[in-house]
Design a protein around this nucleic acid. Structure first.
Length: 277
DNA sequence: ACCGGGACCTGGAAGC
DNA sequence: TGCTTCCAGGTCCCGG
């Protein structure tokens, strides 16, 4: 579910509670979230016990926690339905898999009904977790290289929308912000990279960067209780969406918004603002 | 080597 | 009021 703006909102929410705090104890239960760790839940719990958190970083839709004097980090991916919540209540969500008990009494809970997300211990190389080396920088990263991404996209015959969603090309963009960026750039998602001018690709990437910055300012996009921040509150960007989830409604230009499928994902677009070629 | 499609899950909404 | 079907904000792996 969460894309870059929602993940960044969660990172900021966790940062204030976790950084500088020691993990006094860990609770939870085994589950698919730990599938990338050979020792499963027990290994993760034992490793985190007693650690002092000193940083919380993000690349695309992934967050990782750094610990004082340690080479190992905990990579957090929320998948489609993951939540990280800060609480002082002992109530357990049915799908809670990990809870960190911090000194001071604050607790951080990781919940994921569909278990598409994961919690993975990883070494770090060149300041990026090894398990995330195949994930490209996102448009808000200091390592972001727009020209390199533009060249790569223009060399491929794949639909532009599919490439915006490819986390090995650029990370952080998901189905919502891909469609919003394409609408802002007046481009239909089925346009092929090889058919686009450099300026056109530059424009859609700039639009993605801008729309995600705007969404972060209002805490991301919530359609329902699936996405909430670390305090359980929704984000407000849904009221600023131009096309995503709005098939049958009117575009700002007055034309009816349509929906079709590209590479198995819904694509919402305005046929007037975003001509197919 | 690239690409599209299916698999992985639960739960909420819509349809009958 | 059920029961069934469809759909979802993501990623990975497989076969063509």
């Amino acid at each position: 579910m969460p894309e870059l703006p929602e993940v960044e909102t969660i990172r900021r929410g966790l940062q204030g509670h976790l950084v500088g705090k020691r993990i006094q104890s860990v609770s939870g239960k085994p589950g698919r979230l730990f599938r990338n760790n050979p020792g499963g839940y027990e290994q993760v719990a034992a490793t985190l016990q007693g650690k002092l958190t000193d940083g919380l970083r993000r690349r695309g839709k992934f967050i990782w926690m750094e610990f004082d004097g340690e080479d190992q980090v905990l990579v957090v991916h929320l998948g489609m339905s993951g939540q990280a919540r800060v609480t002082d209540s002992s109530a357990r969500h049915k799908h809670e898999y990990l809870r960190l008990h911090l000194d001071g009494g604050t607790q951080v809970s990781f919940i994921d009904p569909r278990t598409f997300g994961h919690l993975t211990l990883s070494e770090v190389r060149d300041s990026v977790p090894v398990v995330l080396e195949h994930i490209a920088p996102d448009p808000l990263d200091a390592r972001w290289d727009a020209d390199a991404v533009i060249s790569r996209m223009r060399a491929s015959r794949r639909p532009i929308k599919t490439m915006l969603l490819d986390q090995a090309v650029l990370s952080g963009v998901g189905n919502i912000y891909a469609d919003e960026a394409l609408h802002r750039a007046h481009m239909h998602g089925r346009q092929r990279g090889t058919d686009l001018a450099k300026d056109q690709v530059a424009e859609v990437l700039a639009a993605a960067q801008q729309v995600m910055r705007e969404a972060i300012k209002v805490g991301g996009t919530s359609f329902d209780s699936l996405y909430v921040n670390t305090d359980g509150e929704p984000g407000y960007f849904s009221r600023s969406l131009s096309v995503y989830g709005r098939s049958g409604e009117s575009c700002v230009c007055g034309t009816e918004i349509l929906q079709e499928t590209i590479s198995g994902r819904s694509h919402f677009y305005c046929p007037k603002c975003q001509p197919p070629s």
